[in-house]
Write a protein that binds this DNA or RNA. Structure first.
Lengths: 344, 344
DNA sequence: CTGAAAGCGCTTACAG
DNA sequence: CTGAAAGCGCTTACAG
């Protein structure tokens, strides 16, 4: 009652025009193989003539399937998430699904709110990031019976199918590479000030590799920043060198911070990599195109997005998916790293 | 029938628990001021006890209002759109709306498909980018009676409310600034190879300002690239200087391309800005933090996103909005521009 | 293979 | 201010 659309054409109009029942018209569109050729033809013809387009809300209400997937990412400001979301959306669209998107700003409370809204909207599936959520989230999602997959990590401790990389192993390998180049005086810039289990794992991997080499970093050699931004990287590096000029290698948990550190180092008269080696993580565009091009770890964000889409669609349609999907995150050696100049 | 949720609690359960009719329960939630205090209390209590959360699809179907807004942007790979979308989503959420997002990859056909899908999903409003669409788009949207606003431009030739900047005036002003610095030998790098009316307007503004100064750029001084990427900017600059070393100023339609050009210039042994002035457009992070920091034009992407959200919500709820909202796009002078060294 | 009918979970005139 | 009932536009057992 009281709808604005006086003349919006609906399925019953199509049925009438095609001289079939509403049920048959519906079937002709949704399970064409089940309705006889000539009839299907008539329905298709009527659809075309009347310019019918289905009301997906009504369809969702009666079928229990919305063909909507919800995703909540920390921020689109990080290219790694922007790329992942873009790939996710493309793949979902290709499979007939539409994307509901929200960003949490690294705030678990906001994340929970958004998830709640998505659930109320009847999403068929949910893609999240990482493996730490507000306590209500998982029970809520499960109570709704909505499948979910988490991304950018390759395992979950909470029974969620995960598709991503092993952040800890990746930085461990990266750190070993620096150790092999003879570095012993390390510093770390980590964006772990906000809740971020991926960055935390990356930090862990660095610390672990150092420990394995018998190096224990004093706490003032680890600076925590809130966000992956160039400006924070800059500030962190200048703080580090103000008190501690012995450092020969700076490990960063992401590229933006590494680019900032690299740029600031040069501004301070240090030559990267001759005087100072710097590594990032993510392999976003500025890493490759910076000056010097940054040694970093590649995160296959679009692959993650695509696979997440495929998995969700597949489980919604009754399929099985692996609980853990680990994508390769290779070290990309470029020009921001070199042998230590004068090993201590 | 045949729904998976055996025990999902619905409004009728709430009504029963609160000892009121379904209608009253509905009103208590949607128009609380219209139901008497004690009854409202009982309903709210029941909601809490049962953990009721509304089914927005059902609500949408019967009320004709989905509380969903759809947005389609060219790409999230451009920070300007990522930021705008983020702000849009935040503001929509704050006002009780959810965002359906798609990216078109600068393809009008894909854009049309996504809009079609959004319409089928019953969006209450649509936010688009620019002022050129596949021919079917506008009639389709109007036929559905869905309000829309377009962004990143400040006027529409097609009767769509627009909120954004005047791209043409902004580059005109930017170009005049370079002219005042004494430059006469210009080149332009424009990402106009793909359909992009914003970049086209920016290019127009540059050409116009030059014409006003009596300068007519030969066509080989204008290089068109497809996307706003650092790599394209690099390539464009090296192509330009391979044949034409007289250039003293390079105008770019966006920052990514300008950063690439700047970086490549330095690689070629040119000092920016001493030998070559370069300007970008957008004022994304790498512009401010690059080396040298880039002179550019600020695009208030988050403001655009916020206003688009407010406008849409306001018209959905019966309000009026201006047809044209022009935000300021000031020139940000940094270190990539200087007086021409030896004016011709 | 096709049709008549019930139902998805809400909202909202219409009466009272 | 509250309730009974119709209706939103579809899908899908159930019969035939």
């Amino acid at each position: 009652m009281s709808h604005r659309d006086g003349g919006r054409v609906k399925l019953v109009d199509v049925a009438r025009a095609a001289n079939v029942s509403l049920a048959t018209a519906s079937r002709a569109l949704n399970q064409p193989e089940i309705v006889r050729e000539p009839i299907r033809r008539r329905v298709e013809e009527a659809v075309r003539l009347l310019g019918y387009s289905p009301d997906r809300m009504a369809r969702a209400l009666s079928s229990g399937r919305s063909h909507i997937v919800g995703a909540v990412v920390p921020t689109l400001g990080n290219a790694i998430f922007a790329d992942g979301v873009e790939a996710l959306q493309d793949r979902l669209a290709a499979r007939g699904y539409t994307l509901l998107l929200a960003n949490s700003q690294y705030d678990p409370r906001k994340e929970e709110q958004e998830i709640r809204a998505f659930l109320e909207h009847g999403v068929d599936g949910l893609v999240l990031v990482g493996d730490s959520f507000a306590p209500e989230v998982l029970p809520l999602v499960r109570q709704h019976g909505v499948p979910l997959v988490t991304t950018y990590v390759c395992t979950s401790g909470q029974g969620i199918p995960a598709v991503g990389i092993d952040n800890r192993q990746a930085t461990r390998k990266m750190t070993r590479y620096l150790l092999e180049l003879g570095h012993r005086e390390f510093a770390i810039i980590a964006n772990t000030a906000l809740p971020n289990d991926r960055s935390k794992a990356r930090l862990d991997g660095m610390v672990l590799a150092l420990a394995e080499a018998g190096i224990r970093l004093p706490s003032d050699r680890i600076v925590e920043v809130a966000l992956p931004s160039i400006a924070y990287g800059r500030r962190a590096l200048s703080g580090l060198f103000a008190t501690d000029p012995a450092i020969t290698a700076v490990l960063c948990t992401n590229d933006a911070v590494a680019v900032g550190a690299s740029s600031e180092a040069r501004r301070m008269g240090l030559n990267v990599p001759r005087d100072l080696s710097i590594v990032g993580f993510d392999n976003i565009e500025i890493a490759a195109e910076g000056d010097p091009p940054l040694t970093t770890v590649n995160v296959p964000a679009d692959e993650i997005g695509r696979i997440a889409a495929d998995y969700l669609v597949s489980v919604v349609e009754g399929g099985q998916i692996p609980m853990s999907t680990r994508l390769d995150a290779p070290l990309i050696v470029r020009d921001s790293t070199d042998r230590v100049r004068s090993p201590t």
